[in-house]
Design a protein around this nucleic acid. Structure first.
Lengths: 140, 140
DNA sequence: TAAATTCACTTGCAAAAAGCAAGTGGTTAA
DNA sequence: TTAACCACTTGCTTTTTGCAAGTGAATTTA
């Protein structure tokens, strides 16, 4: 776990020191959906991250203990990226960003449905997804 | 309200397009405490933002409707920066970042006390602070 | 089994953004 | 009326981002 230089002792500032950029939380988002787990899958996301930036972010996230690199069950050529407990714990942050975004942006039907489920019982939704993601770690 | 180029229709990505950097949320944080409201006050924060970067971020946040520039009651030389309703609504995001940071960083006594209050009743804390910040807007 | 393809990156370079220090032009206090 | 304060701006260097092409190991295809 590489040490990142902290600008201050504020937990917000220290958090942003690690993942306060335009890409890191999108990687976490992709892992949260748990459909995309390989390097190539991240590249396929709608935002079109550049490959060298992706490599750099994956390194930072890994050395900060937010994601882990694992063997892919299908092939030795592939790498399986997964959230760690520390990464899973970013879920509430991500959910609140979704809910803020819901207020100020036009959403796709997909996101409308997603956020409907979230809002039915936010805490329950977070708990369920957290449990699901934890189980995926154990099965590796 | 200047339009910022969106990388995709994802609300997380669109949110990060506006304030996904190392500084924007620290400005929001300072305004949330409602003690720091002038340009000079932002410069005094522990993280030591560069003055040109501060100017740029304030412009973006203003043109995105997250903060507003107002007359300072004390002097014409000063400018009063305030959160708008859109900015106040970032409070839940900020609180979840605090709570994540609490898990993984060493906190100052100040932040320990702050987060103790937050955790006693998170929703109540957010509601109260939201109301308080809204009142401050009205009194301007 | 050799060649083509897939996969996870790396490298090189141009453009953009961040960071630093000094400067500017109104406002206010002495 | 002069000095200090305030909110920026400007110029310059360093760092980061973004794009395109390349690399080498693993895997599929002919």
């Amino acid at each position: 776990m590489k040490e990142i230089k902290k600008r201050s002792v504020c937990p917000v500032s220290s958090s942003l020191d690690i993942w306060g950029d335009k890409w890191s939380l999108l990687i976490v988002r992709d892992l949260m959906y748990a459909k995309q787990c390989t390097y190539g899958d991240f590249l396929k996301s709608d935002e079109k991250i550049a490959t060298n930036i992706l490599a750099a972010r994956l390194l930072t996230l890994e050395s900060s203990g937010i994601i882990s690199k694992n063997e892919h069950p299908e092939s030795k050529a592939k790498v399986l990226y997964q959230l760690t407990e520390k990464g899973i714990n970013l879920l509430p942050v991500l959910i609140e960003i979704y809910l803020w975004g819901e207020k100020y942006f036009t959403l796709s039907d997909y996101h409308i449905e997603f956020l409907k489920k979230v809002k039915e019982d936010k805490q329950q939704f977070i708990n369920n997804l957290t449990q699901k993601l934890r189980k995926e770690i154990l099965n590796t």
